[in-house]
């Protein structure tokens, strides 16, 4: 079996030439500023689990991003991982992880252009971490941190993060004059509404695995008498 080799691999990685110079430059500056803050905040909020999880999440997200899954109409998508990382290590360390993954993809694997690397890190790593974390906190806060809400919150965070990344990519393409808003935005959001379901299922599966094996990483003590579980109804 011969594997077809796509010329421009995998989801949302913008290749060089798609963005105008000034859009690419502006997002380089925004990304550098965000990463400077993220690195400082990661140090300030450091916990014993931070460094181990940063290594593991970077490895898992890189591997997961290689696994394109089919969506409708001869199109594929793959996980981004920014929301999942933010749920497990917080948004700041998640941004650092995602910058590593997206940076290595561009530098070593020629996946995503170097001139547009700032935009790619911002779309797939910074925005996904911030938005994903906010959605997760909102849902789990609403559900009082109960386990079903952790999984629902993870799915919602992952889906919304993909849509935000797709919106940002569309906006950059439109502002760059590569495509028109009215053409690129509905097309991108339509495809990524489906890809986001894959992101949500994989992220929720990963969080379910963590809940089953190391619930302390999600701030839950393994003891089933834990107060966050009190009064929980069995689904």
């Amino acid at each position: 079996m011969v594997l077809p080799m796509p010329q421009l691999p995998i989801l949302l990685h913008i290749p060089d030439g798609f963005l105008s110079t000034w859009v690419a430059t502006v997002f380089y500056l925004i990304t550098i500023a965000c990463l400077a803050v993220a690195i400082r905040k990661t140090s300030e909020s450091y916990q014993e689990s931070t460094a181990p999880l940063m290594g593991v999440l970077a490895a898992f997200i890189f591997a997961a991003q290689m696994m394109n899954f089919p969506v409708a109409g001869g199109t594929s998508g793959h996980m981004l991982g920014g929301a999942l990382a933010a749920i497990l290590v917080g948004p700041w360390a998640a941004m650092v992880i995602m910058a590593c993954v997206v940076g290595v993809q561009a530098l070593v694997f020629q996946d995503g252009g170097l001139a547009v690397l700032g935009a790619n890190i911002f779309n797939m790593g910074i925005a996904t971490a911030l938005v994903g974390f906010a959605v997760y906190k909102a849902v789990t806060g609403f559900g009082n941190g109960k386990r079903p809400f952790i999984l629902v919150g993870t799915f919602a965070a992952a889906w919304v993060s993909v849509m935000v990344a797709a919106f940002l990519t569309s906006a950059q393409l439109a502002v760059s004059g590569t495509s028109d808003w009215g053409i690129v935005l509905p097309a991108m959001l339509g495809v990524h509404a489906l890809i986001g379901i894959g992101e949500g299922v994989i992220s929720a599966g990963a969080v379910a695995f963590v809940l089953a094996t190391r619930p302390d990483l999600l701030g839950i003590t393994p003891d089933f008498g834990d107060s966050t579980l009190a009064g929980e109804h069995v689904r």
């Binding site: 796509p6 949302l12 696994m67 089919p70 109409g73 990519t169």
Partner: peptide, 10 residues
Amino acid sequence: ASPHPDGLER
């Protein structure tokens, strides 16, 4: 992995 073009490529 699926060899189909991804979302942005499509």
